[in-house]
Amino acid sequence: MKADIEKPRGLFDRQQMNTGRDFLLDWLLRLVLGGTFIYASLHKMAFPADFARILYGYGIFPGSLINLLALWVPFIEILSGICLISGGFGMLSKEAGLAVINLMLLSFVLIIGFNLFRGHEFDCGCFSFDAGPADGLKQAAVRLMIRDVLLLGAGFFLWRRFRQKSGHADQSEA
């Protein structure tokens, strides 16, 4: 008879606390990743000619594509950021937004890493195009690389959580 007595599931229930913590962590990661991409896109959208000059400075993009990329990339950033933060709209899901963000972060890391490896100095122009960094372009590129690797780590972590959740949802449906 004793075994039939259920434990009370109140406010301080461990499972509920874990769920609340997971929810907060997911939200925080979505806000940081999506917010970073939305913020980074604003300057680029407003001044595509300046962003195009920054892309030229990377020294890896073909001239015929630079203007197109300068126009396109900021809109990919803002759209994927909005999808991730808002939770998505139909097919434009938060998972699709996160996939794009992770792919972009991976590309940024590879491009910056390649330029650091070959010793090519460049201005990333990631958030604005005003004054160059006070401590030199190379140090700025290293800082940027570290930031992007951290964001990419957060992005992959969040992707795994999305996958786990969808797995649980599939199991409970079955």
Binding site: M45, P48, L71, W72, P74, F75, I76, I78, L79, S80, C83, G88, M91, L92, S93, E95, A96, G97, A99, V100, L103
Partner: peptide, 21 residues
Amino acid sequence: SHIKGVVLILVLSFALALGVN
């Protein structure tokens, strides 16, 4: 469905970029 979402984001952002430009 996520792959379709990614493609949609890319297509939509391209159209938006050209329009706004």
